[in-house]
Design a binder for these strands. Structure first.
Length: 453
RNA sequence: GAGGUUGUAGCUCAGCUGGUUAGAGCGUCGGUUUGUGGUUCCGAAGGUCGCGGGUUCGAACCCCGUCUCCCUCCCCA
C-alpha cells in the first residue's frame, strides 16, 4: 500500500473551490455567449502531428507526449536507441495532450470548413497541459477559456475582445487591471527602422523584460543577441514610449514613418481604439505597450495581455491575431483573432483580493432531521414537496443524535433545519430553525414553502 | 531544460552539537444521561520523521541518490 499523491503540478478542486471556480466559469461563459460565440469541445488527446511545430521549439518541449499503447518499443533498432531521446520520442509516441485550445480549434475549422458559418465565432472552456516547471500561478494542468473568431480580418473583433475582457473582469469585481495591447506589425516596423529587419523576434525577447530588469540590462541582452551598437542607439525612443500614453500614437507614427508595415500596425491599433470608444466603454483600462511581445510565434497582428494591477502574478489573460494558423493544416488565407482567460490565475487574484461573494458554497437550503423510522417516513413526504418547489433539501440519512445532525447542518452551512418529531407529525406544524440566528418557529408547510419562494 | 530551496500526526510547526517509548496547538473521533449545532469540560485515536541506499554501537538529525514543494532563469495562463 502506498500513500496517495498528486502528479506534479496538478490539483484537486474540492466543493468549496468548485463553487468559486464555477462562479468564474459562468461569468466568462455568459459574456462569450452575449457576444455571439458558440461552444466547442475538442479531445484532450491530439495527434502529435497536429501539435508539434506550432509553439516553437520551447513549446514542443513542453508538450506532454503519450506513449504508444502496446509494445511501443517494437521494431526499435540499436542505432535508433543511440540517437537520443528527441528522435526516439517521435518513434514511440504519436499522440500528445493539448497545449492550448487555439491549435485544436484551427484543426477543427479546417476539418469542418464546408459546414461552418463564416465568420465562425466559438468559445471553448477546457483544461490544457504543459510539462512546465510548476510555480505560483503555473500548473501543469490548467483551464483556458478561449473565444476566437476566424474568417474575418475586421478590427471589430479586436475591439470586441477588449470589451469582453472589461466585461468579464468587471463582472467578477476586478476593477484594477490593465489591458496591454501591441501589434506585431509595429514590432516589425521597429526592427526595420533600427536597421535590423526581420530581427523582431530576438528583439522582443529582450525588450519584453524592460519592466523586470531595466533598460541597461535590456541593452546588454540585445548586444548579446547580436544587435550592433548602432541599432541599439536607434532603439532608444522605445524606452520613452511606454511612459507617455497621451501622445504615444503620434510619437510612434513619427518614429516609424519610414516603415510601411509599422505604420499599418499603428493605423490598426488606432482603429481598435476608435471602435472601443464608439461602443461607449466607460473608462477603458487600455494601454499601448510597444514592449509587449508574447512568445507564441503564430501571432501576426494585434497582441493582448491582461495584468491584475494589485496582485503580483503573471498575466491573467492573453491573445492576439494570427493570419495563417490554419495554413499549416492546408487552409491558407484564413485570419483569426482570439482571447484566452486563465481561470486559475483569476481565481488566485480574486482570492487574494477577497472578491468572491459570500454564500457561494451553500447548496442545501433546508435539512430535515431524522428521529426514527416514523419521522423519516413522514419527512420523506415533506422532502418531496420541498424539492418539487425547487428548494434544495435533504433528509439526514441516519437516526443519529440530534447533536450530530445539527453539527452536520452547521458544517455544511445549511441555513435552515426542519425538525420533525412525534409532536410535529401529530399537529402538522413543523419546527423550522434558523441556524445562523438560532431562532426557531412553528409553522405550517405552506408557510415554510413560501419562505423559500 | 539549468540553478537554488523545502519535506516530522489530517493542518501549522517544535525536536539542542546523532543517544532510550518523536512533541505542541488546531482539527478528527467518543463522552458530558435519553428532541437542538457553532462556547466549555473530560477522554481517545493518529507518525516505518517524503522514499531508497550509505556512514555509525546508535540517524528525524550526517553523506549520496530520487521524488515533491516553493523560488530564480527560460517560457507562459
Amino acid at each position: 500500500m502506498s500513500k496517495p499523491s498528486l502528479a506534479r503540478g496538478t490539483r484537486d478542486f474540492g466543493p468549496a473551490q468548485m463553487s468559486k471556480r464555477n462562479y468564474i466559469f459562468d461569468m466568462i461563459r455568459r459574456v462569450f455567449q452575449r457576444y455571439g460565440f458558440l461552444p466547442l469541445e475538442t479531445p484532450a488527446i491530439e495527434n502529435l502531428s497536429v501539435l508539434m511545430g506550432k509553439y516553437g521549439d520551447e513549446g514542443d518541449q513542453l508538450l506532454f507526449k503519450i506513449l504508444n499503447s502496446g509494445n511501443f518499443a517494437e521494431g526499435l533498432t540499436e542505432t535508433q536507441l543511440q540517437e537520443g531521446y528527441k528522435k526516439l520520442t517521435l518513434k514511440v509516441s504519436e499522440k500528445g495532450l493539448r497545449y492550448d485550445l487555439t491549435v485544436p480549434f484551427a484543426r477543427y475549422v479546417v476539418m469542418n470548413r464546408s459546414d461552418l458559418v463564416m465568420p465562425f465565432k466559438r468559445y471553448q472552456i477546457q483544461p490544457v497541459w504543459r510539462a512546465d516547471r510548476p510555480q505560483r500561478g503555473r500548473y501543469r494542468e490548467f483551464y483556458q477559456c478561449d473565444a476566437d473568431v476566424v474568417g474575418t480580418d475586421s478590427l471589430l473583433c479586436e475591439a470586441e475582445i477588449v470589451l469582453m475582457i472589461h466585461e468579464v473582469l468587471r463582472g467578477l469585481g476586478m476593477e484594477s487591471f490593465t489591458v496591454k495591447i501591441n501589434n506585431r506589425k509595429i514590432l516589425s516596423g521597429i526592427a526595420e527602422v533600427i536597421g535590423a529587419p526581420g530581427q523582431e523576434g530576438p528583439m522582443c525577447v529582450a525588450i519584453d523584460k524592460l519592466d523586470k530588469i531595466g533598460k541597461e540590462k535590456v541593452e546588454e541582452e540585445l548586444k548579446e543577441r547580436g544587435f550592433s551598437a548602432e541599432t541599439i542607439e536607434k532603439l532608444q525612443p522605445i524606452f520613452e514610449l511606454t511612459n507617455n500614453q497621451t501622445d504615444i500614437f503620434s510619437s510612434l507614427r513619427v518614429w516609424l514613418e519610414g516603415s510601411e508595415i509599422g505604420s499599418k500596425g499603428i493605423t490598426e491599433l488606432e482603429e481598435v481604439w476608435a471602435k472601443v470608444d464608439k461602443f461607449g466603454l466607460s473608462q477603458p483600462q487600455l494601454q499601448l505597450d510597444v514592449t509587449l511581445a508574447r512568445g507564441l510565434s503564430y501571432y501576426t497582428g494585434a497582441i493582448f495581455e491582461v495584468k491584475a494591477n494589485e496582485v503580483q502574478i503573471g498575466s491573467i489573460s492573453g491573445g492576439g491575431r494570427y493570419d495563417n494558423l490554419t495554413g499549416t493544416f492546408g487552409m491558407p488565407g484564413l485570419s483569426g483573432v482570439g482571447i484566452s482567460f486563465g481561470v486559475d490565475r483569476i481565481y488566485d487574484v480574486m482570492e487574494e483580493l477577497k472578491l468572491f461573494p459570500e454564500n457561494q458554497s451553500i447548496s442545501t437550503q433546508v435539512m430535515i432531521t431524522n428521529f426514527d423510522a416514523d419521522a423519516e417516513a413522514y419527512g420523506l413526504g415533506i422532502l418531496r414537496q420541498l424539492r418539487e418547489a425547487g428548494i434544495n433539501a435533504e433528509l439526514y440519512p441516519d437516526a443519529s443524535k440530534l447533536k450530530k445532525q445539527f453539527d452536520y447542518a452547521d458544517r455544511k452551512l445549511i441555513p435552515y433545519v426542519l425538525i420533525i418529531g412525534s409532536d410535529e407529525i401529530q399537529t402538522g406544524i413543523l419546527s423550522l430553525k434558523n441556524m445562523k440566528s438560532g431562532e426557531q418557529q412553528k409553522l405550517g408547510l405552506e408557510h415554510i414553502l413560501s419562505i423559500f419562494a
